[in-house]
């Protein structure tokens, strides 16, 4: 077999495994961080520091009873969580995890696929991600699940627009839609957060809303909708819904780090005397560190801020973030025109 294809398959499996592994330990990290922020101890019974807790949780989920409500649509009920998980895992394919490895005279880029419309692919996958929730919520045939699904879909559509517009301003600066190229540009110049601070802020807020994280976790607001769209779910199907949320968080952290914070690059990386493969591996570790910082912010915000009211959520999305994103595009265009950067 062609070594490149073999390498791509291995890389895809590795990226998949890493996102699953990180997501599993994010559940542990979330509980631990929540506990620390609230002056508690958190999980510490399973293994040292409770490190085996995700395994225990996963086993519990798998061995719980599979329950499908009698009045529900069975196929769609199963399709919902599967689709949600699928879209969560798909985004990892376009993130560049490092510059590239050189083995046996061949150059292997550390990215599963460098498609030239990487950013659009990202937006596309994000926009179809809502189907998992909608199908699952509708198929449950439960009013709470239904309301949760409706909330999720309208919230995700609203914030997708501001997210796309904030990305357009970034694309104007970079002149490319390929994530690998954007990461490479930040090796030569500054990180793009310097050029697009407002764009980054809008993207960050939209990422919170798109991943259904607090303070935008209205689709599953426990206090009013029981469990939101996953009210009727049990066993590993529920696990898929909860787990996919963490994968989404991981991937959106990776995207934010890549687009705005230099990706796998770190300052003075070429002055350290690291060469080729060593540098690539160090770069991957640096990217993971950046991702962990973003994940920390995700969790930190969740355990600080209360949930928005629904009208506040819609106001923020349509009346604040959308005009801000449009203004950001306008300002970016003006600055580019006056600095003569327009091609």
């Amino acid at each position: 077999m062609d070594p490149i294809i073999l390498y791509k398959i291995i890389l895809a499996v590795v990226v998949f495994a890493v996102s699953l592994g990180v997501a599993a330990y994010m559940t542990w990290g979330e509980r631990k961080l929540a506990a620390i922020l609230q002056d508690r101890v958190g999980p510490d019974r399973a293994g040292p520091l409770g490190l085996l807790q995700p395994i225990a949780d996963g086993l519990k989920m798998i061995f719980k009873e599979e329950f499908i409500p009698a009045q529900s649509n069975k196929w769609l009920f199963i399709l919902g969580p599967s689709f949600f998980m699928l879209t969560a895992c798909m985004t990892g394919a376009v993130v560049p995890w490092g510059s590239g490895l050189e083995i046996g005279g061949l150059y292997y880029p550390m990215q599963v696929t460098d498609i030239n419309i990487g950013l659009l692919y990202l937006l596309g996958v994000v926009s179809i991600g809502v189907y998992g929730i909608m199908i699952g919520g509708w198929a449950s045939n439960n009013k709470y699940a239904m309301l949760g699904a409706l909330r999720a879909s309208s919230q995700m559509i609203s914030y997708e627009i501001a997210m796309g517009l904030s990305l357009i301003a970034l694309v104007m600066t970079t002149g490319t839609l390929s994530l690998a190229e954007i990461a490479r540009q930040q090796d030569e110049g500054l990180a793009y957060v310097v050029y697009q601070p407002l764009g980054f802020l809008i993207f960050l807020i939209c990422a919170f809303a798109e991943t259904n994280r607090a303070p935008f976790d209205l689709p599953e607001s426990e206090s009013e909708l029981v469990g939101g769209f996953h009210t009727e779910y049990s066993s590993m199907k529920l696990g898929f819904f909860l787990f996919a949320e963490y994968i989404n968080m991981f991937i959106s952290s990776a995207v934010m780090a890549t687009l705005y914070f230099g990706g796998y690059n770190f300052p003075f990386q070429h002055e350290l005397g690291l060469e080729g493969n060593t540098l690539a591996i160090v770069q991957a570790v640096v990217l993971l560190l950046k991702i962990f910082i973003f994940i920390f912010i995700f969790m930190w915000v969740r355990w600080t801020l209360p949930r928005f009211r629904y009208d506040q959520l819609m106001n923020l999305g349509w009346k604040v973030l959308l005009p801000l994103a449009l203004a950001n595009i306008f300002i970016t265009g003006l600055v580019m025109y006056f600095t003569g950067k327009l091609a």
Partner: peptide, 16 residues
Amino acid sequence: AVHVIVYAGAIMVLFL
């Protein structure tokens, strides 16, 4: 990509 974003991702979500 635009087809997926606009039709599958936005319009059909609104239909649904």
